[in-house]
Amino acid sequence: MGLIESGKMPKPLTKLLNISRRYSLWVYQWGLACCAIEMGATFGSARYDVMRLGVIPFPASPRQADLVVISGTVTDKMAPSIVRLYEQMPDPKYVISMGSCANCGGPYWDSYSVTKGVDQLIPVDVYVPGCPPRPEALLEGIVLLQERIQNEDISARWRGEPIVVN
């Protein structure tokens, strides 16, 4: 992997690498509130069948995961655990924020105990709106994230440059 570290990745190799990464996303399910049930319906039910998109929803721990779906209300008491588990995930890692609560606080925008947006704690790649979002919406979010991964230059990511999606 000397090529990546030196910052020179041939284009075809990047493309090949990205196709592989795109269709083998191991997703860690972070179920917090109502959205957890819709996430369970997306990942666990035969009707929506998320595995046809190359998403595998059964990692045993965050250390094996590429993607985490933060679904539900993030409270101030929960916040340190979220940061800690995010830090346990190996790079490159992606975050989908599912539902209004995780996006911005949602119906609890004036609550004293709710963190208004998980993006205050960890960087978020895709926001899925809705209260709760339908399973189809979460699938759309996953497809968007896959497009983003496809257009990503892994060596640029290692250098810390922002991702530009065409």
């Binding site: 917090l32 409270t75 008491k77 929960m78 119906p107 609550s111 709710v114």
Partner: peptide, 28 residues
């Protein structure tokens, strides 16, 4: 307390029709 959202306090600043929107989410 990891899921405490402060319902009883929030209902004090919501009108009665607005409260039903909120309390839907107690037992989801």
């Amino acid at each position: 307390g990891y899921m405490h959202r402060g319902y009883e306090k929030l209902t004090e600043v919501r009108t009665y029709p607005q409260v039903t929107t909120l309390i839907n989410r107690i037992d989801w």
